[in-house]
Amino acid sequence: MDALRYVFKRILLMIPILIGISILTFFISNTIPGDPARLILGPKATPDGIEELREEMGLNDPLYVQYGRYVNGIFHGDLGESTYSQQPVIDDLERYFPATLELTLFAMLITVLIGIPFGVISASKKDKLPDQFTRVFALLGVAMPAFWLGLLFLLLFYLKLGILPGSGRLDNGVSPPDMITGMYTVDALLTGNMVAFKSALIHLILPGITQAAVTIGMITRMTRSSMLEVLQSDYIRTAQAKGGSENRVLYGHALRNGIMPVITLLGMTFGHALGGSVLVESVFSWPGLGKYAVNAITYLDFPAVMGVTLLIALLFITVNLIIDTMYHLIDPRLKYN
């Protein structure tokens, strides 16, 4: 009950945050130099033509009027029309966002499955061979730029070995599963379409690992240092004195205590990965939000920029909420308030 009330309160708190973000992005994107009307009409446009289009797009109205119009649109599910793609922004987001979300979630999954165990092993075998190995692994992951690592992967697994696909989300000839979430692997599983699932999963591997390389490194190191601190605690000695095996002490007592900072970092990297997936998406021709956002910025496509920003902000806040709730689930010392 306490937990539900807490979550509800936090969701209410999201509203002012989102309003703040929308105001900020709206005013910043509308006050930077550059004229969308001029960009749309191209270099041969006449001043009269530009003026006419500005009037038509409402760009000559005061900013607060434009903002009001925009917010009003949001409540009707209308985020405006992209000046670049000539499509409603909401449709564009619906098309590109699931691809990015799927890639990011997959990368996070790899990060958790590899990073945390590596960190735990590294801490429990401090200064021994496994620790040195994971240290090098983590350093490489953090130090290698994603686009370069991506290119190496393409070269090796796609061009030389030919065992993994190098671009897109599905093989040619495989039709996307029925749309439910827009994430192909999830939709394929939900509809029992195993052909599409296999194809979608294989296509996720290279971009997923590329995206995860940096975060695996960070999570490994964070888990290691957090675990090292916890392993010095008195209650770890108590657990050993009770006769618990090494693994029991490590995973039953230490990990839960040591995982908190790791979860914080995971949340932050999740938001980061969502917004910064453009490099990986470019290398692997992944039809995601990153490329869409870069195009939108290049062409001063304000409605698209706004839409992307709001969506990522919303997601970021949600992830934060999930993380804070997880804290409370893990640590009974935190009270819901």
């Binding site: 605690s233 008195d234 209650y235 000695r237 108590t238 657990a239 050993q240 004195a241 009770k242 006769g243 618990g244 095996s245 007592h253 839960r256 205590n257 893990i330 640590d331 009974p332 010392r333």
Partner: peptide, 24 residues
């Protein structure tokens, strides 16, 4: 030794504030 610890021989530590796992 793990079978001895906590079974035939057990131990109590100095600081009960830090010797108990806060999350269990």
């Amino acid at each position: 030794m793990q079978k001895i610890r906590g079974n035939q021989a057990s131990m109590i530590f100095q600081d009960p504030l830090t010797s108990l796992n806060p999350l269990h």
